[in-house]
């Protein structure tokens, strides 16, 4: 990789200051996406700000009806947490299917949400559950946060501190992995919430994670697998690549949505 300077600040303020003073700084949260990208010479930050030394950045707690997960909490910690399993089991299940066991020991929820890779798993849960992204300076609602692939509402030198997930009545995630990378070729997160049915789709759209209004409307009336069948899934704006064209992805959205709902019994 290109030369870079590593920093491990002890406070959020120092991390923000470090990012501000760097010529081209990047946050290091788990590094499972950033480091491979740097190894391939596709990214060349002058400074790496490791947020894992900051007190309170990792950990899971329940505050009433809200599950709070620190940004530097690893996928393995989320997957194995009894709090997560009790509050939102679908989130634990989603985390247990990210990457592989070794990646899950390092990769973090904050890193994934900040990167907003269009084929990542977490954004679908954050969006479908209507989570709140808490940063060093403000709170951002999920629906305002995701702004297209690799694009978010985060400002310069803004750092995610934690994610707050309101508990849904029930939720499930179904993923169809890319046969090569094993990222989501399509992932559908369905949540039965106080605000109605929420369905977020990852992996499919050229605009990144999105909510599927047709599926939400169908499920709001009848939260059952059969309700999914009548919904038209347009492939417009869907990605096409050597693994799946837009039409096949559209089919997978329906099939994964159906399976996610069916898993709820």
């Amino acid at each position: 990789m290109y030369p870079t300077k590593y920093h491990k600040p002890a406070s959020l303020e120092d991390a923000v200051a470090g990012l501000r003073s760097a010529e081209d700084g990047a946050l290091l949260a788990g590094g499972q996406t950033l480091l491979p990208t740097m190894k391939q010479h596709l990214a060349a930050p002058t400074d790496l700000i490791d947020i894992r030394g900051i007190d309170g950045m990792s950990g899971i707690r329940v505050e009433g009806d809200v599950l709070v997960i620190g940004a530097a909490t690893t996928h393995a910690e989320v997957a194995g947490s009894s709090d997560v399993q009790a509050a939102i089991p679908a989130l634990a299940q989603l985390a247990s299917g990210i990457g592989d066991a070794a990646v899950r020991h390092m990769g973090t929820i904050g890193g994934s949400v900040a990167n907003n890779d269009p084929v990542a798993d977490y954004p679908s849960a954050v969006l479908a559950l209507g989570a709140t992204i808490v940063t060093d300076r403000r709170e951002i609602a999920a629906e305002d946060y995701f702004q297209g692939m690799f694009m978010t509402a985060l400002e310069e030198a803004e750092i995610i501190r934690e994610l707050r997930f309101p508990k849904p009545r029930r939720a499930a995630y179904a993923k169809f992995p890319n046969p090569a990378s094993r990222y989501a070729l399509v992932g559908v997160f369905v949540a039965d919430t106080a605000a109605g049915a929420c369905v977020a789709v990852t992996g499919a759209s050229e605009s990144g994670v999105f909510r599927h209004e047709g599926l939400e409307a169908a499920l709001s009336g009848d939260f059952s697998a059969d309700a999914v069948d009548g919904v038209e899934i347009s492939s417009e704006g869907f990605m096409s690549d050597i693994h799946a064209d837009a039409d096949y992805r559209a089919n997978l959205v329906r099939v994964m949505a159906r399976r996610a709902v069916a898993a709820l019994g």
Binding site: L28, P36, Q40, A102, H105, M106
Partner: peptide
Amino acid sequence: CDTSQCGACVVHVNGKAVKSCTALAVS
């Protein structure tokens, strides 16, 4: 490999499996 996928480099850090090709020594 150079994309953190093959797993030939797995070691344990503080008792947990990690891909040593995807972790900085200084960190």
